Amino acid sequence: MEFNNTQAIYLQIADYVCDKIQLKVWQADQKIPSVRELAVMLEVNPNTVMRSYEYLQSQEIIYTRRGMGYFAQVNAAQNILKTRRAQFMDEELPLLFKKMKLLGIPVNDLQAQYQLFINNNIS
């Protein structure tokens, strides 16, 4: 995994875990990689993964079973979707609207482009 400089590494790892859960690579209520396993996979310090896991526990995405490891919450995918939608609406969409306004792009053009994108990326 390549990390960027725009976001803390532990948050990028949390996004990675969320992606795996949303894509159903890691199923709800099933064990996910241990802190050490994920640290080796991503070539990071285990303390960084631990921080990610603590963050995800606070977001009710994963939970721990004593002596067994970490597991994806039953409703993890729904929690991730809800959080990511809210983040998109609150943070990313206003930036898009600002650029559209500056460039004089009407909403109708955006809708047409979105439909083209959907039609060309059916999968």
Results as ranks from 00 to 15, higher is better:
E43F: 05
E54I: 11
K31A: 08
N47S: 11
D19T: 07
C18H: 05
N47F: 05
Y10H: 14
D29N: 13
I13L: 12
D19P: 00
A14R: 05
Q57V: 09
Q7F: 12
C18I: 08
V40H: 12
R36T: 14
L38T: 02
N47W: 05
T48L: 09
L42S: 03
L38A: 06
I32T: 06
K20T: 01
E43V: 04
S58F: 00
V35C: 04
Y10L: 08
I9V: 15
V49E: 04
N47Y: 08
I32Q: 00
P33N: 07
V25D: 14
R36Q: 14
K24V: 04
D15V: 03
A14K: 08
S52Y: 05
S34C: 05
L11T: 10
V25M: 15
V35G: 03
V17G: 05
Y55N: 12
L56D: 05
P33Y: 01
V35L: 04
C18K: 15
N45H: 13
M50E: 13
L23K: 06
T48S: 08
Q7A: 11
V35P: 02
M50D: 12
A39S: 09
D29F: 04
L42T: 03
Q30G: 00
Y10N: 12
P33S: 06
Q27L: 15
V35W: 01
A39T: 07
S52Q: 06
W26C: 06
D19C: 10
E43N: 10
E37G: 03
A28S: 14
Q12K: 12
R36A: 15
N45E: 07
S34T: 15
L56R: 06
K20V: 02
V25N: 11
P33L: 06
D29Y: 08
I21E: 00
I32V: 08
Y55I: 09
A14C: 09
Q27H: 11
C18S: 12
W26Y: 15
A14E: 03
Q57C: 08
D19N: 13
